[in-house]
Design a protein around this nucleic acid. Structure first.
Lengths: 253, 253
DNA sequence: GACGCTATGCGCGTTTTCGTTCGCCGGGCA
DNA sequence: TGCCCGGCGAACGAAAACGCGCATAGCGTC
């Protein structure tokens, strides 16, 4: 197993369990304790976790991962969710809103060949992907670029959204739960996502199982505003049931 | 198997799995590790993935958009003009507007490492190029995407620009002449470019010699609104002289 | 057939990674 | 107090991966 994969796995574990033991990690990855110590040191330098005697603990707020360690996380799950979400979209002319996120990006790629489609997005990577396709109409909100997530946010984005109406908004979130509603790591991003949701007739949330039941720093909207949640089988059944009772239809990809 | 096929396969894998191992790829495609490394290097240069030790991980933005319009034409001249234009920009904090165009794109790349820089642009390819640079602030106008030029235009763009002020606007045009002023082939694009010019203290036009003296369909603004024109030695001296008399300083790269 | 270009494989020196070993520190225990 | 012991940091060496230069082979053009 390569270093970057090991780092990803460590981050995944520490964010799920809250605390990890260096000895256990060494055994599990079949590497020496020194290697684990070096890994933890690097991750601590990047403020992705905090070291303790004998292991490490998660930092308070979930952190946005640098690209090199974000790579594989739940990639297949995201692709699965995106494909399922694509099948749920109606045929024929459609105006669609897309927020930023890996899952929405994959969905955008799947939609690239559709005709009669108008896409509104505040995500630069999605726009870059769709700008090549002459068959669909692409509208970007403006705004200030966030380097971590390629999203455009702020008053310019909000103002642009205020003048648009979408039939369906597909929203990628960092957390969704019955109690916390939709949440994300960044409060400005949350505000812009909320602005898009307000202009949409229906809200579809795409989130791989790791996001279900999680609550992050910034709230976007209440769970009742969501029409459909598309997730995968790794989602905790208890949380899924709670969300279902709160209103949204839940589709397991 | 040809190189391009291999590259495509690599991209497909990395986008599905999120992470790949160079050794596995070499074995699977029956080529040497050196070849795989070269492939990965090319793909990384195009920002289609990120290399790690022993392999690569997926990234979420494909930011090298193919050039749609007269890509190769006057390429050296455009690069020359862009480099000269970059030297004319003041040091220190600066708020800069950039319209779409090949020359402005090259200029954007030259500015990528600067600090204390705020860039306002309506060009998707420029934004995609700059989005990853954490040192500079990037603001996009929104708007409807034009597939030919990657520019965002229309009322959303105009509205976004109305709330911004730039010290310098760098404008790429299809034609500039003493009589016709600044012109371009598309009237909607012209309108948005004019909106940006109105919000700028100074206007700098970058245009290779073939544009000088030419007048195109849609007018952007009068020649008197331009502070500086940067062009190259292939520009017709008569037209240059006429422009100089009309007001703008003319710099030959 | 000669040529120029590109892709590929190989060899070599360099860098990165990882395991091992050593000494240090702090806590528990006789 | 003296001893042991687990975890930590630093240093060294081996192995793997890397970058670079060079030679070769395929391919299209003239």
């Amino acid at each position: 197993m390569r270093r970057s994969d090991r780092m990803t796995a460590i981050l995944d574990r520490v964010s799920r369990l809250g605390t990890i033991d260096a000895g256990v990690l060494a055994e599990e990855f079949a590497v020496s304790a020194a290697t684990i110590r070096r890994d933890l040191q690097v991750l601590e330098e990047q403020r992705l976790l905090a070291r303790t005697h004998g292991g490490a603990v998660a930092v308070d707020v979930a952190y946005e991962l640098p690209v090199r360690y974000r790579g594989g996380q739940n990639r297949e799950a995201k692709a699965l969710v995106a494909r399922r979400a694509a099948t749920l979209l109606p045929h024929g002319p459609l105006t669609l809103g897309l927020t930023g996120g890996t899952t929405t990006l994959i969905l955008a790629r799947l939609l690239a060949e559709r005709v009669d489609l108008t896409v509104v997005t505040n995500a630069l990577n999605i726009a870059a992907e769709l700008a090549l396709r002459p068959r669909l109409k692409l509208i970007m909100t403006g705004g200030v670029s966030r380097t971590q997530s390629y999203e455009l946010v702020g008053p310019i984005a909000d103002q642009a959204l205020a003048g648009l109406n979408m039939e369906i908004a597909v929203v990628g979130v960092d957390g969704i739960s019955a109690r916390g509603g939709l949440t994300t790591h960044d409060e400005i991003e949350a505000h812009t996502n909320a602005a898009m949701i307000r202009r949409a007739d229906r809200v579809m949330v795409v989130a791989d199982g790791s996001k279900v039941g999680r609550t992050c720093l910034a709230g976007i909207c209440a769970i009742g505003d969501v029409a459909v949640l598309v997730t995968d089988a790794s989602a905790d059944p208890g949380h899924v049931e709670a969300i279902r009772r709160a209103g949204p239809e839940v589709v397991i990809a």
